[in-house]
């Protein structure tokens, strides 16, 4: 890690903080998938890693490489944009698949279709 000596102090401290924040959130999300008991609760846990977990580590990479070079390096933003756009697609498809499987098996915890009817005045 010889390049770290070339980093100014503020940049290395900021990078260290952001990397720890991102990986800590990702680890908490992973622990969440172990702790929650039902599938629809587990869906929420990995989004910790895909939102600010990814965001913080990508920011850390931007800070580190921008301080190393003379010009700002922002291509890590592409990873952030990519995660924001793709996570909903995966999770919506998975939620629909889970709902479909629960309903065909007659699981009583699955929400009934009647919830989707518009109630009066709503």
């Amino acid at each position: 890690m010889t390049h770290a000596e070339n980093l100014p102090a503020w940049a290395s401290l900021l990078t260290a903080f952001l990397v720890l924040l991102g990986s800590g959130l990702t680890l908490l999300g992973a622990i969440g998938t172990l702790r929650f008991r039902r599938f629809f609760e587990r869906v929420h846990a990995p989004t910790l890693g895909t939102s600010w977990g990814t965001g913080a580590i990508a920011l850390a990479s931007i800070v580190c490489f921008s301080a190393l070079g003379s010009r700002p390096v922002v291509h890590e933003l592409l990873i952030g944009v990519f995660m924001i756009v793709t996570t909903p697609v995966t999770l919506m498809l998975l939620a629909r698949a889970a709902l479909y499987r629960d309903r065909t098996e007659g699981n009583r915890e699955a929400p009934p279709r009647s919830l989707l009817r518009r109630t009066h005045g709503g």
Binding site: I84, P88, L91, R96
Partner: peptide
């Protein structure tokens, strides 16, 4: 979906109700 704590489950286009 990006917000932890809320997840999009189902949307009915005919009634406009989101689950």
């Amino acid at each position: 979906t990006s917000t932890p704590g809320t997840a999009w489950v189902e949307y009915a286009p005919e009634s406009g109700v989101l689950l």
